[in-house]
């Protein structure tokens, strides 16, 4: 039996969308026993401001097709990305939404759960909106069984530049504790 799970992260260039996928992909691939993951990303010349997305596919078996076709989880950080990708959300799927940047409409009704986080505001309270992606991942970690906090922090410490670690850890914590 396949235990395939598809996650799409989406927002605009500059929010660190690809980093979200890379971190989650690595945590699952290298630290979650018995699970494999593949990360693919939209790739283009528009790095800032344009639409950006990436997929993480998780399975207990070898992953054949590396991209999402019907997301189980949709983590969305911009209005444009919401409208572009929400049709591909699985009925009964779970959404994580940057609540100040995305206005939901009827299409969101097919989600079984919608978690809302003011990720950018949390990040700005720490001095830069750059931490919004990690705050969102703290929120995802707390509300799903996708990956463990310990493994995530281990990977983040190895992947994120030393001078940004402290703030990112705080952002993760704040996202995790948000009710």
């Amino acid at each position: 039996m396949s235990d395939r799970i598809e996650i799409r992260f989406a927002g605009f260039g500059g929010q660190g969308i690809a980093l979200m996928g890379r971190l989650v992909g690595e945590v699952i691939s290298l630290h979650e026993k018995g699970k494999q993951s593949v990360m693919t990303q939209s790739y283009g010349p528009e790095s800032r401001g344009g639409a950006s997305s990436c997929d993480v596919v998780i399975d207990t078996q070898v992953i054949d097709y590396p991209k999402s076709t019907e997301f189980d989880y949709f983590v969305v950080m911009s209005e444009e990305a919401y409208h572009k990708y929400v049709p591909l959300l699985k009925k009964g799927g779970i959404m994580f939404v940057e609540e100040n940047l995305v206005t939901l409409d009827d299409q969101a009704k097919k989600a079984s759960k919608i978690f809302k986080l003011p990720a950018t505001a949390i990040a700005e309270s720490l001095g830069s909106r750059l931490y919004a992606n990690i705050a969102m991942l703290g929120f995802v970690c707390a509300n799903t069984d996708l990956f463990s906090e310990e493994a995530f922090i281990q990977v983040m410490k190895a992947k994120v530049r030393a001078r940004f670690i402290e703030k990112n850890l705080t952002a993760f914590e704040k996202g995790k504790n948000h009710k």
Partner: peptide
């Protein structure tokens, strides 16, 4: 190809 080149796996 571009997808294999940019995709990440173990």
């Amino acid at each position: 190809d571009e997808t294999i080149g940019h995709m990440s796996e173990k």
